[in-house]
Nucleic acid binder design. Structure first.
Length: 228
DNA sequence: TGAATGATTTACT
DNA sequence: GTAAATCATTCAA
């Protein structure tokens, strides 16, 4: 897939994102990540999806974040680094999750990618996801969850700490982000699976494309959680 | 060295 | 609606 093209005048790749975009507060960056595209190249092949759901994790103040209280360990180290890098971790002993590091060095914030709309490499996604099922899935079910999308895209902790803004040659395994299509209608909700964090779980820090059917949980009927 | 737990998914009632 | 799968990470000792 040679979707990226060098502009003839020598400017940046048309689809490449500036690091400064991610070097802002996570609450600014997270909703603007909707519509961006996540791409993986592995030996098994390429896959691409449009981000339709994210959550903001605003450590060290955010009790729901791994970096809460400034906790800096081997696992969370990537969150303390520069923006635009991938923080990938394993949860429940089974599932990988991928985040985009935001803010400045030393401020451990990240955007969790929770759902994608599959665009390229659907047969490969089916093959990877079928391992645990054995039956064909609907397109919307391939990447409608943080663990599901990592499985479908072939993402695991090998990709922890890689630069999401630096595409490599196609012969090398990597994951990166490109610009995509804008999202018309962004909705918000409380974050999922962080009830232990008390009042922090009530913050409307989950952002999703209200018009996409590929999100992990569809908005309630009549819900009006629209957000600019 | 050992024990507790989790930013989930799936299957089953 | 509930529960099981499954293990890296973390913390206490």
């Amino acid at each position: 897939m040679s979707r990226n093209e060098n502009a003839s005048d020598g400017s940046l790749l048309s689809s490449q994102l500036p690091r400064e975009f991610f070097a802002r507060d996570v609450l600014e960056v997270a909703p603007e990540c909707l519509g961006l595209e996540l791409v993986t190249h592995t030996r098994a092949g390429c896959a691409r999806g449009r981000i339709v759901e994210v959550e903001a994790y605003r450590g060290p103040e955010d009790r729901a974040a791994h970096s809460f209280g400034g906790r800096r360990t081997a696992r969370t180290e990537t969150m303390f680094g520069p923006a635009g890098y991938a923080y990938v971790f394993l949860i429940y002993g089974i599932h990988s999750h991928i985040n985009i590091v935001t803010s400045r060095v030393g401020n451990p914030q990240a955007v969790l990618i929770r759902a994608l709309e599959p665009l390229d490499g659907l047969p490969l996604m089916q093959q990877r996801r079928a391992g645990s099922l054995g039956t064909a899935l609907a397109q919307r079910q391939l990447c409608n969850g943080p663990g599901k999308l990592c499985q479908a895209m072939g993402i695991d902790r090998r990709f922890n700490g890689v630069d999401l803004l630096a595409p490599q040659g196609e012969h090398q395994e990597h994951v990166f982000l490109t610009s995509g299509s804008p999202v018309r209608h962004i909705a918000t909700s409380r974050r999922i699976g962080v009830d232990y964090a008390g009042e922090w779980a009530d913050r409307p820090w989950r952002f999703f494309d209200a018009e996409s059917s590929c999100v992990s949980r569809l908005p309630k009927r009549g819900s009006s959680s629209a957000n600019g």
